[in-house]
């Protein structure tokens, strides 16, 4: 259902006249102002900062706007804008590799999450009706548990003298401990684990709506079960697949906690690069430029997601 409801005739808010309009604006004003001051303005500052040069000082950047100089002063500052940070980002292969590596890690994790999430969502949608609320609650429950704790839990399992290696060696499957911790594989496991509920929920929503009669019809028309599954079940759940994949992919690209706890020194992700640029190198303008490009990278998947949501709402 669409959230954009038709305004019923004679609605109290936003209805007729200037005074009711003013009253309804008063409702919107506090959150509106809050978001402008604490979301829009900070982002504009980041944008502006990305065109500044770093200096060794506190705070470590120059120049900033000084409104006391008036319009002419403002213009002088604009002329001092430098694209230095962006040319630096373009020339240093470290940053390119970090962006590409983030996209790669996020994409691989998304595919794994889809392959694991689909059978679970499919089974949930087929489960007896009275089980479903419980199953749904079980999928949502980890979301309420701290993200940090869920990632931390894997360290004890994956590390060299951890539980997994302990069990595998004890059962004689392997003789030498596996190195999983501090590799890309550990990052994949972490991302899939942390974001799996985001994949399952939209998949379940679209699978649950499907009419089982469609599969029967396909069978009656001579389609083998696997073909019916592919052409009916998977095809019809495509909106759910798209939504789930984007819900995993988008946050995974900018992920910081998972690569820094589970990843190794050669795991390159842009969220971590930004963090290091900011906290270790103290190059705030460069960190800002990294942030601006990350937003640009994410604009495409985010627009895709919003379009898919809008289409589903219709």
């Amino acid at each position: 259902m669409s959230v954009e409801m038709e305004e019923p005739a004679g609605a109290p808010e936003g209805g007729r006249g200037f005074v009711p309009w003013l009253k309804s604006i008063a409702v919107a004003l506090p959150p509106y102002l809050w978001l402008v001051v604490f979301f829009l303005v900070p982002f504009l500052i980041v944008l502006r900062m990305s065109f500044s040069e770093a200096v060794i000082a506190m705070p470590p950047y120059a120049p900033t706007f000084d409104l006391s100089e008036g319009v002419s002063g403002l213009w002088a500052r604009v002329q001092e804008f430098t694209t230095f940070n962006y040319t630096f980002l373009a020339e240093d292969s470290l940053y390119w590799r970090a962006y590409l590596s983030s996209l790669r890690i996020a994409a691989i994790s998304t595919v794994i999450a889809l392959l694991i999430g689909f059978p679970i969502a499919h089974a949930m949608a087929r489960a007896p009706r009275r089980w479903r609320p419980l199953l749904l609650a079980l999928v949502i429950m980890p979301f309420w548990t701290s993200f940090l704790i869920r990632v931390y839990a894997w360290i004890g399992i994956l590390k060299r003298d951890g539980l997994l290696n302990g069990i595998l060696q004890w059962t004689g499957v392997i003789s030498e401990p596996l190195t999983i911790m501090n590799t890309d594989l550990a990052v994949f496991i972490g991302i899939v684990y942390a974001y799996l509920p985001f994949m399952i929920l939209p998949l379940y929503a679209s699978l649950e709506r499907q009419d089982p009669a469609l599969l029967e019809a396909a069978a009656d028309l001579g389609s083998p079960p696997w073909l019916a599954f592919w052409q009916v079940t998977v095809r019809l759940s495509l909106p759910g697949i798209v939504a789930g994949c984007l819900l995993v992919f988008i946050p995974a690209v900018g992920e910081f906690v998972i690569p820094s706890l589970l990843g190794g020194s050669d795991t390159l992700m842009i969220g971590q690069t930004l963090w290091d640029e900011f906290f270790s190198n103290r190059d705030w303008p460069l960190a800002s430029a990294v942030a601006v490009i990350l937003v640009l990278v994410l604009v495409v998947p985010i627009t895709l997601f919003q379009r898919a949501q809008a289409r589903q709402a219709d």
Binding site: F38, I45, V253, G254
Partner: peptide, 26 residues
């Protein structure tokens, strides 16, 4: 207004954190 309400949901945390800090410093 709509965009500002939905954007923080998908904004990477590192960017939200950085932009907030720059505001407080400014």
């Amino acid at each position: 207004f709509t965009a500002m309400t939905y954007a923080p949901l998908v904004m990477p945390e590192v960017i939200t954190g950085l932009s907030m800090l720059l505001l407080f410093v400014a």
